[in-house]
């Protein structure tokens, strides 16, 4: 008999059950058999994740661009190491063929590698030295907006999920991922990738749960500076936008494409510094 596990939440570098003591069953695609049990994250779990993410942001933002690049590359390496686990998951839970599952993992690994190479370059493309009319060295420097929550697409697309996470991380932010209904079981191996890639605790947190339960808390939490809304539920996006206006959250709609600079620039702030020039 197969041992069915409960996949735990990933908060502050640890695998924990929800404090609410709730779980739900995740079934194999097209069948009525259980694939795994998942924790149903509560408001308190989300708040814990934000607390941890604040610290994770400080640590991540202070790392050098070179170091960030290497850590993202490490994620590609760790995903490669877990290739079979991911493939089996996609075949068993989503009913993919071996070829499809392999392609899914390949494209996700490529996405990690793509953003790894961007960490130490996008500042040079999107930042600037500004020729002001005066004796000042004037430059525009880029930094992350801060704690970002990713509302994942409800239709599971592994590459897109990795793209969404990487674009937030590359921008210098920490991320709290709320997995969609598509394939929340990916939480297990994916969190293990982040847990073994030399990230500080809290830089990536991953939750499974229900968007409808958590959406108001995400929108209203003042410490969450940005939301990457990748779900197709446009009405929920507009509702969250409305509820987040009081804290002026940066609400980012669905990305149009993947592996591009724009996705990173959605999660940055520009800081212009005027430094005097003179004797």
């Amino acid at each position: 008999m197969k041992v069915v596990k409960t996949i735990k939440l990933y908060i502050n570098g640890e695998f924990v059950r929800t404090e609410s003591g709730r779980s739900y069953s995740y079934n194999v695609a097209g069948k009525n058999t259980q694939f795994a049990r998942l924790c149903q994250a509560s408001r308190k779990d989300f708040r814990n994740a934000v607390e941890s993410s604040k610290e994770g942001f400080k640590s991540w933002a202070s790392k050098t661009a070179y170091n960030k690049s290497q850590i993202l590359y490490r994620m590609a390496e760790m995903t490669e190491g877990k290739r079979h686990e991911f493939e089996e998951l996609f075949m068993e839970a989503l009913g993919k063929t071996q070829g499809e599952a392999t392609a899914m993992v390949d494209s996700a690994i490529d996405t990690f590698v793509y953003y790894s190479g961007f960490c130490d370059k996008f500042h040079q493309i999107a930042g600037s030295i500004n020729p002001v009319a005066g004796p000042f060295h004037n430059f525009t420097h880029i930094e992350g907006v801060g704690v970002t929550t990713l509302v994942e697409d409800d239709e599971f697309d592994f590459q897109k999920l990795v793209d969404s996470i990487c674009s937030i991380l590359t921008g210098g932010n920490s991320v709290i991922v709320l997995l969609g209904e598509g394939c929340p079981a990916v939480l297990g191996p994916l969190a293990e990738v982040f847990a073994t890639s030399d990230l500080s605790n809290g830089t990536v947190n991953i939750l499974s749960g229900h968007l409808d339960e958590l959406r108001d808390y995400i929108a209203q939490h003042r410490e969450v500076r940005s939301v990457s809304f990748q779900s197709s539920r446009e009405d929920v996006f507009h509702d969250m936008k409305q509820k987040s206006t009081d804290n002026m959250k940066r609400m980012i709609p669905r990305h149009k494409k993947q592996k591009c600079l724009e996705n990173i620039l959605n999660f940055v702030e520009y800081k212009t510094v005027w430094h005097p020039v003179g004797y």
């Binding site: 600037s128 500004n130 002001v132 009319a133 005066g134 004037n138 520009y270 212009t272 005027w274």
Partner: peptide, 8 residues
């Protein structure tokens, strides 16, 4: 200080 070339 303000300048058209400097983002604000």
């Amino acid at each position: 200080k303000f300048d058209p070339t400097a983002p604000f």
